[in-house]
Design a protein around this nucleic acid. Structure first.
Lengths: 197, 197
DNA sequence: GTCTATAAGAGGATAGAC
DNA sequence: GTCTATCCTCTTATAGAC
């Protein structure tokens, strides 16, 4: 652990990503230097460039990885045919996923403006696909007469903002457990879309 | 306008604030240099220090000013005694206020982590007072039997996140007018708190 | 009140040794 | 794969002239 030089490709890569994620989330991309990241990992700044072409690629890989994993995870749990059941699954999935990965979530909406234009476009496209997953559920539920929604697009943006916001205040040591929180948000969501029950 | 030197205290101050606000909102506090702000105003970087002690004070003044103005504006419109009416007033006020001041809103929640500790505490205290205004309405509505809410604190955080999110997607040239948007969010809010009607 | 000039340092990224 | 050393640019903030 204390040796000053050697070959650690297998572990250094992930450690750089972890350190960058944590530091970007805590202080912001622009406020974090490559030297800080390197210090956190325990290498010199120059060594980082064996793993990433530049600082921007480090940010983009983290954000892209997060969105792709979010989409993939949703596809794994999205099973039900009933819109009301799908919506409940979505709400509980979203809350749980976001509470499990506060740093990824945080940078993925805080650091959009620090992406270079083409990276920004790529990330917005992934984000849009996730929003569309919810929109499909709402549209289907309206068509089935189960939901009452004046505008599904606004409902999508409103609900996602509401649910994502849980990351800003939830504390593991707080008054409510994760499943309490899931339940409260599901109650609000159910009512917001006019779902009887 | 083109003169290189002279005395412009009355107009330069506000222009610095405007430029800083716009640049911080667009690129982030850490990514914006004092030179950029000065260039936007049309002075040299050194001249900024006649108006602000340092860059941090510039950020804090903008954020503090925004929160105090938000609180003051709310107190002016909060009149009704009926919780349902109060809630509708709050929702419409919040949407309108946030659509009118996208940059202030943006930096006031994006740049919290760039505040020095004592400034952060001061800002969180202002934010908390605004949240409490909504919480009082919800609590009163529950007590009056008009609202059905499983947890008022979570409802406050959820509703504010939902409503504030309007800034992230609304475009003046879009499909919906401001009053359409107000109405849609009010519909969702009304249902989310279990208000009949 | 604004300028020019500058101090004193931190930033991203690369070169070449090992 | 990592180190040390370095290039060059940009940074915040101040000093003193006008």
């Amino acid at each position: 652990m204390a040796r000053k030089t050697g070959s650690h490709a297998e572990i250094t890569g992930p450690r750089i990503r972890d350190a960058a994620l944590r530091l970007f989330a805590r202080h912001g991309y622009a406020a974090v230097s490559m030297r800080q990241i390197a210090a956190e990992v325990g290498v010199q700044a120059g060594a980082l460039y064996a793993y990433t072409s530049d600082k921007q690629a480090l940010l983009f890989d983290l954000m892209k990885g997060h969105m792709e994993h979010l989409l993939g995870s949703w596809k794994e749990v999205a099973r039900s045919a009933d819109p009301a059941q799908q919506l409940e699954t979505f709400v509980r999935f979203h809350i749980r996923y976001h509470l499990d990965r506060p740093d990824e979530v945080f940078i993925s909406y805080m650091e959009l403006r620090n992406l270079e234009p083409e990276n920004f476009v790529a990330l917005e496209s992934l984000r849009r696909r996730y929003e569309d997953a919810l929109q499909d559920i709402l549209t289907e539920g309206c068509a089935a007469g189960q939901f009452t929604i004046s505008d599904t697009r606004v409902a999508v943006m409103g609900l996602i903002a509401m649910l994502t916001g849980v990351s800003t205040w939830f504390r593991e040591s707080g008054r409510l457990s994760r499943s309490d929180v899931e339940q409260v948000y599901w109650d609000m969501t159910r009512r917001a879309v006019g779902l009887a029950g």
